[in-house]
Design a protein around this nucleic acid. Structure first.
Length: 372
RNA sequence: CCAGCGGGAGCCGGACGGUUAGGCAACAGUCUGUAAAACUGUCUAAAGCAGGUUCAACUCCUGCCCGCUGGACCA
């Protein structure tokens, strides 16, 4: 595989790459690409994590990238997820979240032996360099910038900002250097942390990131778009925040282990304005899930004869044109998406049929209910 | 530690020693070959905690907890 093919594979279905030039240089020097993506253990795994992020990992692996999944237990604790209960977080990390990611990878034919899982506890324990790195990062971030960056943890600047919240962004930045990550991967919501990492990279003296020539480099940051939620934009709002699929709003999200009936019902209730392309979850899912950010693919829509009969789209633009011109009715698209998702998620559902894995999900549900 | 202010449903929040707050969200139904919007309807509970005063406390009093703001000097 030549470098351009690798770049295509690595950058497809992404919203932002910082920067493609840096990526190219890294490949040209023949430096091993060390990827990471981190997840808080905060709720059930939805399509954004399960399909968008894990599908991207399948791309990375194909391009020869070494992939790491960071189970951010300490970050969850700092951010008061699962009630800030450390024992529940640990339990959910091992018995639910990790299994959920393994299940998601299976949807792309990836075996979990191809990626490395690492928890915060594993990384930090007996790791003095991490502590040093964390402090040095702190020396290069101003309070105001740090405060602005807490949006990465779903928080707004306000009066409920405690010190733990302020520890979080520099900790996340330090993770990247401690893990030796030169390809940081996340949703667009995490870009502030990654940009700080890139800025700080050039200033670090204790544990800088280097390429295989020994030159100090900044980690490449790759951001995917946040998958649209089922409920559509909030009244009077069109911002990213109200559009995205959120684990904390179960009605906005489809989870990887949802049953076929749940998937159908949720999609039926999804926001789906005819003709409208912007802020339309159906179109968003077609583009980013089904066609995976590519122009061509294969998507079959079954519909009754009286509404035009079955149709197969091989170009995403054709589908979008038909939708705009009302040649494709939202409900028909919904049904096709539901079928597509049910099939795509089949390996994940199967993984959760394993009694032990299922037990982890049951436990997770308990944690989430208790919290509320 | 000291002082002032505050603490009410998922969120915001007016008032009041007694009689439904209200809004948003949520849920259900109607209407559209989906959803949304619109319309109709439904429901949720409680006042940070512990006491006290009172026939009656969200309201008044005491203590405690939590939060916000202020607390050297200079001016």
């Amino acid at each position: 595989m030549d470098i351009n093919e690798k770049i295509d594979l690595i950058t497809r279905n992404c919203q932002e790459v910082l920067t493609v030039d840096d990526l190219k240089k890294l490949l040209e020097t023949g430096t091993e690409i060390n990827h990471y993506i981190g997840f808080e253990i905060s709720g059930m795994i939805h399509l954004g994590t399960g399909l968008i992020s894990m599908g991207k990992i399948a791309d990375f692996l194909q391009a020869g990238v070494k992939c790491k999944i960071f189970l951010a237990d300490f970050h969850s604790y700092l951010n008061n997820k699962l009630g800030g209960n450390w024992e529940n977080i640990r339990e959910a990390t091992e018995h639910y979240f990790k299994q959920g990611l393994i299940a998601s990878l299976k949807c792309f034919g990836v075996d979990d032996s191809q990626v490395e899982f690492i928890t915060g506890k594993d990384l930090y324990e007996k790791n003095f360099v991490h502590w040093e790195t964390f402090m040095e990062v702190g020396k290069h971030v101003t309070l105001s910038r740090n405060l602005r960056s807490i949006s990465i943890m779903g928080k707004k600047e306000g009066n409920d900002v405690d010190m733990a919240t302020l520890f979080y962004p520099p900790l996340q930045v330090a993770d990247i250097f401690t893990l030796g990550v030169n390809l940081a991967h996340a949703g667009m919501d995490q870009r502030k942390a990654h940009v700080i990492a890139r800025d700080v990279a050039k200033k670090l003296t204790i544990n800088p990131l280097k390429n295989n020539k020994g030159e100090i480099i900044a980690p490449i940051a790759i951001h995917q778009n946040l998958i649209a939620g089922l409920t559509g934009p909030e009244k009077g709002k069109n911002d990213e925040e109200s559009l995205k699929m959120s684990k904390s709003i179960p009605s906005s999200a489809i989870f990887i282990h949802d049953t076929p009936d749940e998937i159908r019902n949720k999609i039926k209730k999804a926001y789906g304005p005819p003709k409208e392309i912007q802020h339309n979850p159906l179109i968003n899912w077609v583009e980013t899930l089904v066609f995976w950010g590519q122009k061509t693919g294969n998507f079959k829509i079954s519909r009754p004869e009286k509404f035009g009969g079955d149709i197969v789209y091989t170009k995403v633009d054709n589908l979008i044109d038909d939708y705009k011109n009302e040649k494709l009715f939202p409900l028909d698209l919904k049904n096709a998406l539901a079928d597509w998702l049910i099939e795509k998620l089949e390996p994940a559902r199967k993984h959760f049929e394993n009694p032990e894995v299922k037990q982890g999900l049951v436990k997770m549900r308990e944690f989430l209910e208790k919290k509320n």
